[in-house]
Design a protein around this nucleic acid. Sequence first.
DNA 1: TCAGTATACGACCAATTATGTCCGTGTTCA
DNA 2: TGAACACGGACATAATTGGTCGTATACTGA
Lengths: 151, 151
Amino acid sequence: MLKLTKKADYGLMALKYLAERPETAALSAKDIADAYGIPAQLLAKILQQLTRKGLLKSHAGMNGGYALAKSAGSISAYEVILAIDGPFFITSCTKGANGCELTPSCTIKEPLARVNETIAGVLKSISIQDLAEHEHQPGHAPEPKLVTLTI
Amino acid sequence: MLKLTKKADYGLMALKYLAERPETAALSAKDIADAYGIPAQLLAKILQQLTRKGLLKSHAGMNGGYALAKSAGSISAYEVILAIDGPFFITSCTKGANGCELTPSCTIKEPLARVNETIAGVLKSISIQDLAEHEHQPGHAPEPKLVTLTI
DNA sequence: TCAGTATACGACCAATTATGTCCGTGTTCA
DNA sequence: TGAACACGGACATAATTGGTCGTATACTGA
Ligand code: SF4
Ligand code: SF4
């Protein structure tokens, strides 16, 4: 419960990997998969999804592969998760048609919707660049981000 | 992905229901289940779990049922989710033994652990009382809570 | 031009998890 | 004593996730 799928996980890793290598023109799905031990075909599908959503640019043929479509700083973790796993909701209601059938009697969906928004906000405030920058030198103080939650 | 289980959902609803009725000595699982249309036996098991974790007090026999073990203000949504669904992690690693096998090569687990902490913080800052108070009068300004995220 | 390398995409399968039911046991009270 | 309740394990089923396969298509460079 409340767990990121591995697909989203893999997607984030791949984007981070690309963000760390801005000099290379393109990296193939296999290259990235091998670097981490991710199933190559699965990662390929994930990268294809990200391409369709406009987060990556793809290039077939020899020396082809994927490259970031935008700057690493302008891609948020939220976008990635959204692209891979679809709309982001922590509850089963709110997702259009097929929600849970006790939505009318439910009294906690509004508060939970706020929580949902807050978590989405957290995810939106994290960029691929944040992930890539992270592990560098010990002396760099990462700037804290603030998120507001109103029940 | 990143979705609350219905069990946790039901648990929160039940606790809120109890919090709104502090006068009654105890309410049976069936009472609460009927009020919302939740499967009674399933809710019963959830309430039993919450009892084992010390969030509820139970009383068998006629006119028995469940009551809050603590004040509604001192029970956080985090505790409830923890009691029902077990340890709270957004990633597959960090959960003791059986995590994902690419933990050593993974480069995003530290940042994600911070995100995990942040989300846990959000959940911890929400009490059952917050849920119960919510829908009252329109004029009451709910106080916003602040959560800090440091990548 | 053609072989090799790569993406694109849908169908399919296996493993896991979530959801819910059944049933027998023990407890309390009128 | 019996009705109404909690307790808890063992199922059964549905939904989701994680992963594979096969094939078509696109691009490159020798
Ligand atoms: S309606 Fe209530 S019970 Fe149903 S999914 Fe939404 S929050 Fe959960
Ligand atoms: S180790 Fe990395 S890939 Fe594996 S679960 Fe943790 S964050 Fe995800």
